[in-house]
């Protein structure tokens, strides 16, 4: 059998991820996280903070909660069910930084934790920054 034929056979026979269920769960978990974020935003606004500061406070709160739930071994269990719903919001970003920080603590604070902290989030930051520069340039030209 050729490589191609075998690959096709494996692809056809492989058990598939439950797509419908994953989409519904991602919607519920992602929506849930965003609702919590919105609640914090409303609360900060009701305390008289200006919109811009309230938004920053909300992001900070959600990042803190994401990191806290990671440290308490809860976030990965939520993500198992939530999938993209827990990955996309800013709490997923916090998880992506906090989890390697915890993991590589065993190799020391400097060469372990500090060096490996951005092993997952690093590419997101690099590509995100480049994408924002590109979009900014496009906007500059089109405007």
């Amino acid at each position: 059998m050729t490589q191609e034929a075998y690959r096709n056979r494996v692809k056809a026979a492989a058990p598939k991820s439950p797509l419908g269920k994953n989409i519904v769960m991602a919607f519920l978990f992602g929506g849930g996280i965003c609702t919590v974020g919105q609640a914090f935003l409303n609360w900060y606004l009701s305390m008289g903070l200006p919109q811009k500061s309230a938004s920053s406070y909300t992001s900070m709160t959600m990042v803190f909660l994401g990191a806290l739930l990671t440290a308490l071994h809860v976030y990965d269990r939520l993500a198992k069910h939530g999938g993209a719903g827990t990955l996309v919001p800013i709490t997923g970003f916090a998880n992506a930084v906090a989890s390697p920080a915890m993991e590589f603590r065993a190799e020391g604070v400097v060469l372990g934790m500090s060096a490996k902290m951005f092993i997952i989030a690093g590419p997101v930051i690099v590509c995100g920054t480049l994408a924002s520069i590109f979009c900014g340039l496009c906007y500059f030209v089109v405007r």
């Binding site: 598939k16 071994h73 976030y75 990965d76 993500a79 939530g82 990955l87 992506a96």
Partner: peptide
């Protein structure tokens, strides 16, 4: 991935 990283595993 790190243990606490939230991801889904395929079947």
């Amino acid at each position: 991935f790190p243990i606490e990283y939230g991801g889904q595993r395929p079947p």
